[in-house]
Amino acid sequence: MQDEEILRVEHLTKRFGGVIAVDNVSFSLQKGEFLGIIGPNGSGKTTLINLITGFVKPTSGKVTFNHTDITGKAPYRIACLGVSRSFQMARAFHKLPAYKNLIVPLYSPRVKRLGGGKYGERDDVAIDLLDDLGFERDSAVPYKAAGSLPHGYLKRLDLARCMALRPDLLILDELFSGMAMSEVAATLPMIEKFNREGLTIVMAEHRLKELFRVTHRVMVLNFGQKIADGTPKEVMSREEVQKAYLGTEVEG
């Protein structure tokens, strides 16, 4: 089970008009792995995630998940196969209570197939999930309108929404951006726990220090190209990587 390939990305390219947002990126992922994707702003991390999850159709290239070709498939199909993604700008149904936000993934064919979340039980399942992620069930938090929650909670709500789908592959797009230190510290162990339980996780992140605490493999993107792939230490000692990061620091 350990050495089974779960995701394979081959020569993936996406152009937006003149911009090549993702340029011939290839990598593969073993089951249970924890991959970090880093890179300066605008380097194509989000676009890569969008390409894998079907939100953006690739110009060329191929994505294989669990030995099925998912290139350019509709997002809901990919989600139902077990790829769950969070959004960089936490998205939620602001008018609904937080726990009702999870009803949508719980209603999906995937969860129906895997069991759990039958009619009338979904609310309980949702509250259980939120409870695990620090929305205490006895407090008022899970019942508040999502729009009234602080940003850190929204991010975690997004994570809960991903987990509600019972994914095989979890893709997180800058989960920690905008979270307070304490919130990050509280969330990290949860993600680690998911990974220990066998979930494959891909995480695009700017907060390198936190990321390197949980991941053993990092992929670096710059201007859409993959410039490095390896353990955090290896990668950060590479000259191109340092240059890429330095470059943006000077500009920004």
Binding site: A74, R91, A92, L96, I103, V104, P105, L165
Partner: peptide, 21 residues
Amino acid sequence: DFGLVLRGIKDDDRVVMAGGI
């Protein structure tokens, strides 16, 4: 729940798609 999905589509169809629907 069915109605929640429908309202979800109105509010943010991307999230609904990401939810496998």
